[in-house]
Amino acid sequence: MTEIIVVTSGKGGVGKTTTSASIACGLASRGKKVAVIDFDIGLRNLDLIMGCERRVVYDFVNVINGECTLKQALIKDKRLDTLFVLAASQTRDKDALSTEGVERVLNELRADGFDYVLCDSPAGIEKGAHLAMYFADRAIVVVNPEVSSVRDSDRILGLLASKTKLAEGGNGRVQEHLLLTRYSPRRVAAGEMMGVDDVKEILGLDVVGVVPESTDVLSASNAGTPVILHEDSDVARAYQDAVARLLGETVPLRFIDEPKRGFFARLFGG
């Protein structure tokens, strides 16, 4: 049974690709067979975050157009045996993706025995974003605790509830999860940033993960190593927890409280 998970947000730059790469790695490191697909046609980036940019020969659109087989286009990860990347095409043709083409590729992945297919959605609500979510069973909605991100993700929730195959067929709905990124416990404590409970209350979603703001995300993308593999990082631990929750385990939230500070630090600030 293959589960299709879309990683989406509406707003750009909130961490969809970082999240897709890390969740895919996390699932694969638990022995699951995982494919992660970049739906951002024209702006390929997942390959860089995964560190396989120099091994892209064929892409998603090549497969859809029958210019190569799916096997030829799937890039096998060098670190994890059961992880595969399907890169986005760099074409400027906005209609390069078709509903039938995407469905055909997903069905082939199902037949190949993949446990999970992660669809890394582009920002916005255009065709690429629509097709990334259309066949999903579950959705990870990536949100920054910031007004425009929260509002845009609510827009996306509306689309998940109406413009997906599950919703249109009337047999069930996409299971939605909230994943907060760039979370700063210190700023939340100071009343400068909305907290987990605030965002949860506004959107009415269950929280699958809270990823703290960290410089580790940039250094991971610089290196082309998904940040979940940086084992001494809180970001990696937060993503590992999110993977566990996706798999149905109950894991308490971490990294949401401000680290304790001494009396003098609190008195004089800083």
């Binding site: 910031e146 007004v147 929260v150 509002r151 609510d154 827009r155 509306g158 939340v188 100071a190 009343g191 400068e192 940033m193 909305m194 907290g195 605030d198 209350e201 506004i202 959107l203």
Partner: peptide, 19 residues
């Protein structure tokens, strides 16, 4: 008033309206 509280209140209203 903490700015996070202001953000939450504004979002609560606009999200309800858009929904």
């Amino acid at each position: 008033p903490p700015s996070a509280q202001v953000a939450k209140e504004r979002l609560r209203i606009i999200v309800a309206q858009e929904r």
